[in-house]
Amino acid sequence: MNQQEIAALAELCKLEFNDQALEAFSEEFGAILAFVNQLAELETGDTDAYVSSLHAPLRTDSAQPGLPHEQVIRNAPETDGEGFLIPRVL
């Protein structure tokens, strides 16, 4: 992968690399990709992708009190006492 592609990938997962870091990371990433590319050798044919054999439990629709308001916002990096504040979303 070239550095441009890596930068685009980083944007998807909300990470950024400065030029220096990008170069170092590109190299490492190349090695990691080569490592996982071993998988290409494996014949998987028409094997099914793994799926859990369990059934999702279906919960009864009965309301319970949630967290008290102050517990909901207690860890907020920035709050006005009611909600979670973030830089303005246009």
């Binding site: 919960r59 009965s62 319970q64 949630g66």
Partner: peptide, 25 residues
């Protein structure tokens, strides 16, 4: 009566962040 993945009340309106639990948060 409740949300999709948790027991929190599914209600319109209400004070901000008063129908929340670890799951829906």
């Amino acid at each position: 009566r409740t949300k999709l993945f948790c027991d929190c009340e599914n209600a319109f309106g209400g004070d901000q962040n008063t129908h929340c639990c670890p799951v829906c948060l």
